[in-house]
């Protein structure tokens, strides 16, 4: 009997991502007729985000739903490319089966011994704040938001006009409470409402980033499997991605409704405001990405992005 370890770095057992990997594990076990035994590890159970990723790259975790750090390869920062896709339709085209973005991901993850199996989209990011908010670059100057420290996330938020502070997830709540930061950025509304809903007043849907998890396998583990099991992993992960694509948009909308019901104000910037952000951010951040990620990849993105 083969034992596989599946983990996610974001999401406890009752979060959508946690439920998704549990389902994935179940399908693998069923599909293998009991030949494969799957152990599931949720957020923080095997350590921090970086630690789980270490285990994954080293093959001590076999499959992952990951929001990876860029520590092993800066090119992984491509998953955080701002204003790469602007609508669910574009996203589906880019990240779907054999989509142009998927090809890039395959190449980037392949470089560190991981096999890209597909996207697991969450939706478009926004900025959640307390007491104050902004729908344009100028007004954002007085607002300080928490960012993840991975390139080019801080650069993106600064290009959007915000002051940034890199904080670990565990410190975000108290930092908002005590005023060290005014809010959080770069997440879909689910996380901000779920974890900081009682503190935050506004969610501005800037849509500056298409947030997606990555369904991945350790390449050594995968290559060592029988053809039958390989196909099983491919089929189950494709199913996981398809289900998510059809459900994520509705889920994000439901989460918005839930947050509004809970007293959060949901704000969509006007088309002009979004267009201005798009230009400013692409001008400021994409050239930086060229240095870090490589001109060839950025050329592909430039050619395809709307």
């Amino acid at each position: 009997e083969i034992e596989l370890k599946i983990a996610t770095d974001s999401g406890t057992n009752d979060a959508p991502s946690g439920l998704a990997i549990a389902k994935w594990a179940e399908r693998i076990e069923e599909g293998s007729n009991g030949e494969i035994d799957v152990k599931v590890f949720y957020q923080d159970e095997l350590g921090s985000q970086l630690e789980v990723f270490d285990l994954f790259v080293a093959g001590e975790v076999d499959l992952m739903l990951s929001w990876p750090s860029t520590s092993y390869d800066k090119r992984i920062g491509v998953v955080n490319t701002p204003f790469m896709v602007s609508s669910w339709e574009e996203a589906s085209e880019a990240f779907g089966h054999n989509g142009w973005a998927s090809e890039i991901m395959n190449e980037v993850f392949g470089g560190i011994g991981l096999k890209y199996l597909g996207a697991w989209p969450e939706g478009f990011a926004g900025v959640a704040t307390r007491g104050t908010f902004s729908t344009n670059i100028e007004d954002a100057n007085d607002i300080k938001v928490r960012v993840q420290p991975f390139f080019p996330i801080p650069n993106t938020m600064q290009a959007l006009g915000y002051q940034t502070e890199a904080l670990e997830w565990g410190e975000v709540f108290t930092s908002i409470q005590t005023g060290v930061v005014d809010g959080d950025s770069g997440n879909v509304i689910y996380w901000d409402y779920e974890f900081f809903g009682e503190l935050l007043d506004y969610y501005v849907h800037t849509r500056h980033d298409f947030v997606t998890g990555n369904i991945l396998a350790n390449a050594d583990t995968f290559d060592g499997m029988s053809d039958e099991h390989k196909q099983l992993i491919l089929d189950t992960s494709a199913k996981m991605m398809d289900e998510r694509f059809s459900g994520a948009r509705a889920e994000d909308e439901a989460n918005i409704a839930r947050a509004v019901e809970g007293g959060m104000q949901y704000i969509e910037p006007s088309e002009e405001e979004v267009a201005a952000m798009k230009v400013a951010v692409r001008d400021a951040v994409w050239p930086l990405m060229e240095d870090q990620i490589g001109a060839d990849i950025m050329d592909k993105i430039r050619a395809k992005a709307n």
Binding site: V57, A58, S69, T70, K74, P149, F150, F151, Q292
Partner: peptide
Amino acid sequence: AWALKRPQTTPALGIPL
């Protein structure tokens, strides 16, 4: 050995780990 096989850098400044 791992650091030589899979070199890493710090997230913000890109300093080798």
